[in-house]
Design a protein around this nucleic acid. Structure first.
Lengths: 228, 228
DNA sequence: TGACGATTCTTATGGCGTAAGAATAGCGTG
DNA sequence: CACGCTATTCTTACGCCATAAGAATCGTCA
């Protein structure tokens, strides 16, 4: 792994190569292993060398998230807006569960890549042509992304080992946990959410906002988060 | 803040006091300020002193999460299961938005406190008596918690500053963002989710699991996450 | 050939979690 | 009251971290 190299001898480093090494390292050894020194070692290079391709560690983490969300590409064969949202949700979840150690990162740092924005724009168009008012369409997509993220973050495979639940004190929970399955829970809740969105669409003439929702104040800060 | 104290002179430290100081520090200065040295300094004490009340930093972080989720106490005046879930969702969201710097912590570490388990048990009972099959009731509560967590994590106030979106390339997103409001989005998606849960309840005779859902394998690990 | 810019390594600073151990205060027992 | 015990606190030290500053080396182009 670590080549013996002179002082100015190129190692062929690239931002992309660094990000890919970082993702691989985090996948294999967890977020805590993700140090500049460790990534550099993985690439056969000293830590400071990375700083010629990445301004600092925070930017590197942002790059990792961008790298990840760019993997989320739902198949474009969407016959309905429901199908489109379903496909997006599953694709996003697949990306997250493929890199469980990085879910916390994705949850923390919004990524606004062109890829992300294009996906968002396409889904907004799909929802709008289905009758959703634009702001509502945006709400739908963002809510869906938040739901997927929350589900992935709460996935039990991520939880550290924890004390067993007292069956006597909490009989219902104890019994429920035994038959619980995260994947079917996700599908169930996703269908519920889609069902609710559809109901909102038919309830209001233009998928509108039932309660004369509060308008965003003029001092509101720019909201930059993409779907992921 | 830092008292001059001799070597064996008590500072009156307590696990509770430490946790409270840690929460306050994180609220004021962010997660990165949450170091053992920094917390200790806040209490007028050396870092190693904390280790007599808390085994290590991870346990301290777990303690913080327990502290937080114990704040989530929805009012017990629930006329329906929908009202009960709504109250819980709003209470949980209020807790999270009251400590935005700690959302990442709550998302990462499941807390299984007695307080949490009691809340879970009560909600399971409420849903079961409304007609939900037990496993479905569990799915409902867990999905709701995941949704709230995801929404809080994706809340734009947490996002670091980011480049403005190109209005020309992404006109729909650009227009939608301008009128977006996280609070109304939350209410909208929450109602959609509740609507979908209600639909699942009336669709199946016992709120059952429509697709002959996959049973949890026998080798499945104990699922310990509470609602928060 | 010689200068230059890009890339890499070296060294150093201040902060982190925490292991090991020394010192002290207060308390219960004689 | 004296004595030792235990809980609490401080001190020191180790290996890790991000990264600032600068020296060494390469390929390239004049």
């Amino acid at each position: 792994m670590t080549a013996n190299r002179g002082r100015g001898q190129r190692a062929g480093l690239t931002r992309q190569a660094i990000l890919r090494a970082a993702v691989r390292l985090a996948d294999q050894e967890g977020l805590t292993a993700l140090s500049m020194r460790r990534i550099a070692a993985e690439l056969g290079v000293e830590a400071m060398t990375l700083y010629h391709h990445v301004p600092n560690k925070n930017a590197l983490l942002d790059g990792i998230v961008e790298q990840l969300v760019s993997e989320t590409t739902p198949p474009p064969t969407a016959s309905s807006w429901q199908e489109s949202l379903r496909a997006y949700a599953h694709a996003f979840l697949a990306t997250l569960t493929a890199h469980p150690n990085l879910i916390a990162l994705v949850a923390t740092r919004p990524a606004t890549t062109p890829h992300n924005l294009r996906t968002m724009e396409a889904m907004l168009e799909s929802l709008r042509s289905a009758g959703f008012e634009l702001t509502r369409a945006h709400d739908v997509v963002r809510s869906l992304a938040a739901f997927v993220l929350g589900h992935a973050a709460a996935h039990p495979d991520l939880a550290p080992d924890c004390p067993p639940v007292d069956a006597g004190s909490y009989p219902l929970f104890f019994a429920a946990v035994a038959t619980s399955d995260a994947a079917s829970r996700f599908d169930f809740a996703l269908e519920a959410l889609l069902h609710g969105f559809a109901a909102a669409l038919t309830a209001a003439p233009s998928g509108g906002r039932p309660g004369a929702a509060r308008e965003a104040g003029s001092g509101v800060r720019q909201d930059c988060a993409g779907p992921g």
